[in-house]
Computed example of a mutant assay.
Amino acid sequence: MISVVVPVYNEEEVIVATLNDIVAALDGFLEYEIILVNDGSTDASLEKVQAANIKNLSVINHIENLGYGKSLYDGILLAKYNCIAIIDGDGSYPASSIRELYKYYPQYDMIVGARKGKEYTKGLFKKYARYLFKYLAEYASGKKVPDINSGLRIFKKDIIINYHDSLCTGFSFTTTITLIFFLNHYFVKYLPIDYFKRKGESKVKPFKDTLRAGQIILEAILYYNPIKLFLLFATCNAGLGLFLWIINYFFLSSLVLTVTSALLIASFVPIFCLGMLADQLKKIYKLRRNESH
């Protein structure tokens, strides 16, 4: 039993083919449903889907564009089954991989398709942003994170619903749930998948959405594991202070740099103590929240 949620925004060129690929991938499942969420498309995406007569398909229609994450969450709420698969409607993910990911359900709480290939690694700005986000996620969780924002994954609905107040309504939805699962010690499995050139025009705004993703990652770490974020800031400050002190001692002999480096190094202790305080406040909040439930 599986519910597949497909967010769609102006994908008239490929959406019917994507849905047919999903149906083919689900052949052999005793029970399944496909939930398409049309997020205010201004092209003929909705009309083409309605005319295609796709088996076991339900459609949610947003009259305005509300965002990638909101579309996914609305589809998850409507889903009948606890096993949820999500896949983008742009043809960039192989629907056939859903069956491979499903082999590890329900032993794992989330199974993620880790993208590979030149389409995934191209783009200098996105490439280095991914490396930075990957480092932050791995630093915070202590686990390997091959792909932080893959749009093809299977997970348990009841877990996602439990963290609804932490979810993002935009393109960072998948980044958010990756961090939620890792930072709350759920079992996550990664499997390599192909990644193809998307059909049509991308809706991602690289600079704006990268900044937003960075904000989401820092907020998630601050919420679930604050001491690690404060420790990172404290270490960076102390490291910069030590670097300036060495430069100043051997080359410059500047009083301003001496004071600046000393302050940066000394800032390690108060920043780290703030992190410990934040961690204790988080534990108190979590305890009281559990008691109220």
Rank of each mutant, 00 (worst) to 15 (best):
E138H: 04
K134G: 14
F173K: 00
I161F: 11
E138F: 12
T175K: 04
F181A: 02
C168I: 01
D165L: 09
F173G: 08
I148F: 13
K143H: 13
Y128V: 12
Y195P: 05
R153M: 15
Y131I: 12
S202F: 05
E201P: 07
L136G: 00
A129V: 02
F125Q: 01
L179H: 12
A137N: 07
Y128W: 09
F196C: 08
S150P: 15
F196I: 09
P146W: 02
G170H: 02
F155I: 00
T169R: 12
V188M: 06
Y163I: 01
L179K: 11
H185D: 12
G200L: 11
S166G: 00
Y190W: 12
V188T: 10
L167P: 09
F155N: 01
E201K: 13
L167A: 03
I160G: 00
D147N: 03
I148V: 13
N149Y: 05
Y128C: 08
F171M: 07
F181Q: 03
Y163E: 10
K156L: 06
K199N: 12
K199D: 07
F133I: 03
T175H: 10
F155C: 07
K157A: 06
I154W: 04
I159R: 01
D165Q: 14
Y190F: 14
K197N: 14
V145R: 02
I148P: 05
K197A: 06
F171C: 08
R198A: 05
K127A: 09
Y135C: 02
K126M: 14
Y139T: 14
L167M: 11
Y135I: 04
H185R: 14
F155E: 05
K197E: 15
K156I: 03
Y190P: 01
F173W: 04
G170E: 10
L132P: 01
